[in-house]
Amino acid sequence: MNYFNLFQIPQKFNIDKNKLINNFYELQKKYHPDNCDKNHLNENKKILISIQINKGFNILKNKFTRANHLLEINKKKYKIKEKYIFNKKKTLIEKFQLYEEIQKIKNQSNSFTKINIFIKNIKIKLNLYFLEFNKKIKEKKINSADQVYGHICFIYKILKKAQNLKNTLTNE
């Protein structure tokens, strides 16, 4: 299902979140099982539609899941079947370097300050990848967008690992 169509918002990465929220409430008013006695839909159909509305809202409100949904739609539209495979050597080196940096920070006396700086830098990197993703989608370069999304997923995992370390340091 194309959730951009469901919520009647343009099929692009940067969306109007207020419009998404407003359309979500309008759809729920219309189709929620508790509210739509006027419609001639049976109870099961009402529940299924409401579930789709909730699922679509959760996908579109989150930039990671929205990016993935946008890729899926465009891959179908342009009949792209292959999945991007990372340049394994380059990716592994980057991955090891970032994990190594987290390990080094973990063992330093000022680790809390350093992990905050690391997290800030990773968030900047992530935002740059999202900007690049948006550009590739606008240009309809779906394979390139898929490559960038792969990097986004990788950097997001690094971010989560760093945030876990921060939480551990906070609790010590």
Rank of each mutant, 00 (worst) to 15 (best):
Y78S: 08
K46Q: 09
Q8C: 09
L48V: 10
P33Q: 01
N134H: 04
V148R: 02
A145V: 07
G56R: 03
I102L: 08
I51R: 14
T168C: 07
I155Y: 02
I59N: 04
T168Y: 07
I102W: 00
I119E: 02
D34R: 01
K138Y: 08
K160G: 03
T113A: 15
S144K: 12
N58S: 04
F86C: 13
N74F: 11
N87I: 12
E132D: 08
N116V: 08
E139M: 06
T170V: 10
E82R: 06
E132T: 05
E43R: 06
Y99M: 15
K83D: 14
E26L: 01
T113H: 14
E100P: 01
Q52A: 12
I137A: 07
Y99Q: 13
L20I: 11
I73V: 15
N171Y: 14
L169K: 13
V148M: 05
K135M: 06
N116T: 08
C36L: 04
L70I: 13
I21T: 08
Q28S: 03
R66D: 02
N68E: 15
Y149P: 06
G150W: 00
I119P: 02
N2P: 00
N127Y: 03
L27Q: 00
Q103P: 02
Y156T: 12
Q147T: 11
N44Q: 12
N39A: 06
D37P: 03
N35D: 11
K104I: 15
N164F: 00
N35I: 09
Q8F: 07
N87C: 09
F86Y: 15
I122D: 01
I51W: 14
K75F: 11
L159A: 06
Y129A: 08
Q147N: 14
S109G: 07
N143S: 11
F24V: 07
I158C: 02
L48M: 13
N5M: 13
E43D: 12
I59E: 04
I73N: 10
I73S: 10
N35T: 11
Q52V: 05
L128M: 08
N22H: 00
K125P: 03
K29C: 10
N35H: 11
F112H: 08
L71Q: 13
I137Q: 05
Y31D: 06
N44I: 11
K83C: 09
K77R: 01
K79N: 14
E94H: 13
I158V: 11
L131V: 04
H40F: 12
T113K: 15
I142L: 09
I15Y: 00
N143C: 07
K166E: 14
N18L: 09
I9M: 00
H69K: 00
N54K: 10
N134R: 03
Y99E: 15
K29P: 09
K123D: 09
K81C: 08
Q147F: 10
S50H: 01
T113Q: 15
N107Y: 03
L70D: 10
T168E: 12
L60Y: 01
I53V: 04
F4A: 12
N42K: 05
S109A: 10
I21H: 03
K106T: 08
L92R: 13
N58Q: 01
I59T: 13
R66V: 04
N44D: 13
N143T: 11
N58D: 05
K114I: 11
Q8S: 14
I93T: 14
S50G: 06
N107S: 12
I51N: 15
N74C: 08
N39I: 07
L48F: 11
F7D: 09
L165H: 00
N127K: 07
